[in-house]
């Protein structure tokens, strides 16, 4: 336990004193400032003279002039933070000759990975919490509405999901830093996976869906059911979709389902639903996203176990 603490302490000190961390942090701070400024501007404009919706505070995280909110931002660039924090964690030590020194000390090999991962998660948590605090604080100041208890809990859950999501990518980066000896290769590999899931994946899915829709011809409804089933299955294989779906529901209480439900039902049903449209209670929102959160955690754990297995099997070689 003491050696684990020593490792975490050292890794944390490394992270916090590195320029790399400073640069990411400033970048994120800058972007969150811009986002909150834009969101607040849009909000005060569009809500002028209207009755305030119940969860006005949460809109800070979801509204934006150019349609790019904090939630989307983290979904998109969160992985980058995880990758940057982890892509050279093991192979840099290997190349500098400190890994075998570390392993010659009386510690288990998994302690090394645990220490690195824990320190990374702490850094991610620090970042996320401070960004959200910044937005919350500025939001209070600009919009002049204070968050209610439920909104506080929603923001809290959102923060946790975000930390898990970024930690997943940290885990992926650490795994690659174990597999590849070269720092350049491991970073490129991690970036490739990120690009695949963020850009290529959705192109692929869209292409597939449009071809399916063409197959069904005029039978629109059936096509839609088929497509939405596929979409759901696919979303479970993409961390980014999992994350954006689950956070969207948590941070936007007006959302009742994760799929575009409206298209599936007829006009009358839609109208009758509108009558009951109201925010979903927190517990209900949580129930909807719980499987997604668990799924994110499971992927993280799988990546982590893979790191263990690869690291345990790896030979420490003289050259």
């Amino acid at each position: 336990m003491r050696s684990f603490k020593a490792l975490v302490k050292k890794e944390l000190a490394d992270h916090l004193s590195s320029y790399r961390f400073l640069i990411i942090f400033l970048l994120i701070l800058m972007i969150s400032l811009i986002l909150v400024y834009m969101a607040a501007g849009t909000m005060t404009e569009s809500l002028k003279g209207e009755k305030l919706p119940r969860f006005v505070f949460l809109m800070l995280f979801t509204t934006s002039k150019i349609n790019f909110s904090l939630v989307q931002f983290v979904a998109f660039f969160g992985p980058l933070i995880g990758i940057i924090l982890g892509f050279d964690s093991i192979n840099r030590e290997r190349n500098e000759g400190t890994l075998s020194k570390l392993l010659a000390q009386p510690i288990y090999r998994d302690t090394v990975i645990n220490g690195k991962f824990t320190a990374g998660v702490i850094v991610v948590a620090l970042m996320m919490v401070s960004i959200i605090m910044t937005i919350t604080g500025l939001g209070l100041f600009i919009v002049g509405v204070k968050p209610g208890l439920e909104e506080f809990w929603r923001i809290f859950i959102y923060t946790i999901i975000s930390i898990v999501y970024i930690s997943l990518w940290l885990g992926v980066a650490i795994l690659f830093s174990i597999i590849f000896r070269s720092v350049a290769t491991s970073s490129l590999a991690a970036f490739a996976v990120w690009i695949f899931f963020s850009f290529f994946f959705s192109f692929g899915v869209n292409a597939m869906i449009s071809s399916i829709i063409k197959q069904y011809g005029p039978n629109f409804k059936e096509a839609f059911i088929h497509v939405s089933r596929i979409e759901k299955a696919i979303s479970f294989t993409s961390p980014m979709l999992l994350y954006s779906d689950s956070t969207a529901t948590i941070i936007d209480p007006m959302r009742r389902t994760l799929s575009s439900f409206n298209l599936q039902v007829g006009l009358m049903e839609q109208m009758s639903m509108k009558r009951f449209a109201g925010p979903l209670p927190l517990a209900q929102s949580f129930l909807i996203v719980a499987p997604y959160i668990i799924y994110l955690l499971v992927i993280t754990i799988i990546v982590f176990i893979a790191s263990y297995l690869v690291f345990m099997k790896q030979e420490i070689r003289s050259v």
């Binding site: 400190t98 020194k101 510690i107």
Partner: peptide, 21 residues
């Protein structure tokens, strides 16, 4: 007994690395 052995053995490796900072 890897931990006991590593506690009682000092190893100075070839081209040893240090944390430079």
């Amino acid at each position: 007994e890897p931990l006991k052995i590593k506690r009682m053995t000092g190893y100075l490796q070839e081209n040893m690395g240090f944390y430079r900072d």
